[in-house]
Design a protein around this nucleic acid. Structure first.
Lengths: 230, 230
DNA sequence: TGCCATACTTACGAAACCGTAGGTTACGGT
DNA sequence: ACCGTAACCTACGGTTTCGTAAGTATGGCA
């Protein structure tokens, strides 16, 4: 089992039911430290996503892992410790995906790839996205969704900045446009989470359509330049 | 004093300091019921905005009003009661402003007005916006920011739907584009909350610029059709 | 086989919080 | 001057939660 990669698998089989199904399953699981740690992170992510930081108790996390509270404290020092790790991993994941999509190409392709990457993250790591969108516990400054969005927006800024200069626009406006683009994709992604109606690639195509041509010059049937399947 | 209108004024003069400055100020304030109610709503809104629902205690609200806990329970029946009223008023306010901006005109003007209205709301009722963006206590379904955004998006949908039909686009895509537009404005507004850099009208102009012409056909110096001052 | 580090438990202290019971003070009308 | 009502308070019960102290089982290894 991969120790580092934020494990996508999450079945919650544990359930703390003491009796096994057939004869001789070991009653208590007794995982290795690293395993338990990963499991707690998984469960924590899920619970934080659906109940928020303050709405989730350490005992609940521990119980769902079939373990008692002090185990959590042993691994993370406390609730905030666990939360911090969850958020950090999630931010890293999202940032990696988007950054990877913003490496090279024509601006329109970059936009397309980034939009797709964000939608992809939202789909694959839904819980993480929910956590990032929700509020952080205290003293946010860093670790906020806003700050993360800003990080991404900063990269978009750089790209836009060049483009703006080349076209004679004020590069100081790049942040604004970057924010608008990210916001457009992010909130559409959130909406799409519940609806799931057009396929992801189609959503991305339409978003790019809107961002690139504007309402005035929309194309009826936009296509992604790079054609994807999933 | 207007009983109903969500009072914008918020100075927190009370502060519960018992000694008045000069001679004979009555030591305890003893407001009328309606006044106290409004004051509690004001304070509640502020606290919920900065600490969230679960992070705010009834006692804290009461203390800040220079009053004891049971007063809050007398007026609102509990923490959730107060929160519900705050959220309801805020949603109504925002919805009114945006709906009012979406009454008549050319689509581009509507977009412009709606964007401006949202930014205006964010600026004027910052705390309210923060509350709406944060998470609701439990059993969200209604009262969520997402649901509010959807309400607004629905209105945008209708407008876009007509436009799409007239232009021969698939009207089923209207929700997607509506969501994208609303998301663009909403998240840009959230960003602008902290930065406050370009003036509100300028932000609106650029948003309309992007939404209308797209990155491909951006204007260097967009102007709002209806010129505003504040 | 005996040892020992690691994984894990039970039990508890302390604090924060919600919500209520029952009593007290000021204000307005008569 | 009196009295009722509306506004407000003190005090407390009961629950939840964080975090810790101190002890128990388990599995690998000399």
């Amino acid at each position: 089992m991969a120790i580092d990669g934020s494990s996508v698998s999450n079945g919650n089989k544990g359930k703390a039911s003491p009796s096994g199904g057939s004869g001789r399953r070991p009653r208590r699981v007794r995982m290795t430290g690293a395993e338990r740690r990963e499991q707690l992170l998984d469960i924590g992510r899920t619970l934080f996503a659906e109940r928020g930081f303050e709405g989730t108790s350490v005992e609940e996390i521990a119980a769902k892992a079939g373990v008692s509270k002090p185990v959590v404290y042993e691994h993370f020092g406390g609730k905030e410790g666990l939360y911090a790790v969850v958020v950090d991993r999630e931010m890293r994941q999202l940032l990696d995906m988007v950054t990877g999509a913003l490496t090279a190409g024509h601006p329109r392709e970059l936009l397309e790839q980034a939009a797709f990457a964000l939608l992809d993250y939202i789909e694959t790591f839904t819980d993480g996205f929910r956590i990032l969108v929700r509020d952080s516990p205290v003293a946010q400054s860093t670790g906020t969704f806003a700050s993360l969005i800003s990080d991404i927006a900063t990269q978009v800024e750089d790209i836009l900045g060049l483009e703006f200069k080349a076209r004679g626009f004020d590069p100081k406006l790049a942040p604004l446009y970057a924010q608008a683009l990210v916001g457009m994709v992010a909130l559409t992604g959130q909406w799409w989470l519940d609806v799931r109606k057009p396929k992801k690639a189609e959503v991305a195509a339409h978003l790019v359509n809107l961002a690139w041509h504007g309402l005035d010059g929309l194309e009826a049937k936009p296509r992604l330049v790079g054609h994807r399947k999933n």
